[in-house]
């Protein structure tokens, strides 16, 4: 006597099982790795915060960061590329504030509290102002933008962001003539961000994370302030509640969980550039001609679906394929020197 509606139950069960198995297996494999050989290094075990020995039975339900549906106009970029599945977009993140492993952010950021949030827009402008959490999704009309994201580590994704053009936010503050650059800053809250509390967890970076753009780059219509992805507000691990998306630059330029945007006269500091100036430049435009000192940037692996045998290596395009819209910004610049 089965009276369940089969359709509904199939879908629900599939989703639930999928996710928990997904998470658990990842955990399992970590532990198996240590079981295989690594029990000799307790420090390594501590490094993966979720691996607690061979405890397969920990059933403590993990709290998940709340996301809400957004209202927005559909993407107009005529995207024809296969999207990276949401589960991958939200579980493969470089967000060292929550740990250096790709899956550390999804594991460590679920309790991230973004209430209250304040984003201040200040510096060389006539009308500095502040946005509260609610303002972030209500002040500007939201639109979907499907962009390629090219990480400096030579992997890439295709992500349907939801947000608004940075230029709208900037113009509202009425920048003055000294506003030549924009400086961005991530939240500094070591109590919430374990990577900021410990150098081991945070990869030896001096926090807060900072980034910068030239004002013409910032005003380009492609440059997006994202408040969501896949139709809902951003997950914590992707930079909730608001982040930058600059699709023609390497991913590290797209700073997450922003609390301050400042108009400045001189080139602002950027975190990876401070850390290794020979490896990461201020511009960080995607450029297949200029290799990272330790690996080639000529091609990339596109993460969509399929396991090990997915033939996903593709050529990297200049400006990540957005040259038509942005190459003009750099016409008098030697991109080899200004990488």
């Amino acid at each position: 006597m089965l009276i369940q509606s089969p359709e509904k139950s199939v879908l629900k069960e599939h989703q639930v099982t999928d996710e928990s198995v997904y998470l658990k297996r990842r955990q399992l494999i970590k532990q198996m790795g240590f079981f295989g050989a690594g029990t000799l290094l307790s420090s390594t075990i501590a490094n993966t915060t979720n691996a607690q020995g061979l405890d397969f039975f920990s059933s403590a339900p993990e709290k998940t960061f709340q996301r809400y549906p957004l209202t927005f106009t559909a993407d107009g970029t005529n995207n024809t590329e296969v999207l990276t599945p949401e589960a991958k977009v939200t579980s493969h993140n470089n967000f060292y504030e929550f740990g250096i492993g790709k899956s550390d952010p999804v594991n460590n950021a679920q309790n991230f509290n973004i209430k209250p949030w304040q984003l201040t827009i200040s510096g060389e402008c006539d009308k500095p102002y502040t946005l509260d959490l609610d303002d972030l999704t209500k002040s500007f009309a939201l639109e979907e933008r499907i962009y390629r994201l090219r990480c400096v580590e030579a992997w890439s994704m295709v992500i349907p962001w939801v947000g608004f053009e940075l230029s709208k936010l900037l113009k509202k503050a009425q920048p003055n003539s000294r506003a030549k650059y924009i400086a961005f800053e991530t939240l500094h809250d070591p109590a919430q961000m374990p990577g900021q509390a410990s150098r081991r967890m945070g990869g030896g970076i001096d926090y807060p994370y900072v980034e910068g753009l030239r004002i013409d780059e910032a005003m380009n219509p492609l440059t997006l302030m994202s408040v969501g992805l896949y139709g809902k507000t951003l997950p914590a691990q992707n930079g909730a509640p608001i982040r930058l998306v600059v699709p023609w630059k390497y991913g590290f330029k797209s700073i997450k969980s922003i609390v301050a945007i400042k108009f400045v006269e001189h080139p602002p500091a950027s975190t990876w550039n401070i850390l290794a100036p020979n490896e990461y430049g201020f511009y960080a435009n995607v450029n297949p001609e200029v290799d990272h000192p330790r690996w080639s940037q000529a091609s990339e692996r596109r993460l969509t679906s399929g396991g090990l045998f997915a033939r996903n290596r593709i050529d990297t395009l200049p400006f990540n394929g957005y040259g038509e819209q942005v190459a003009g910004l750099y016409k008098n610049l030697d991109l080899r020197k200004n990488f």
Partner: peptide
Amino acid sequence: NAYYLAFTDQLGAD
């Protein structure tokens, strides 16, 4: 185990 998970796309996003 690692190869099984990797072949079936269950070993993380990448």
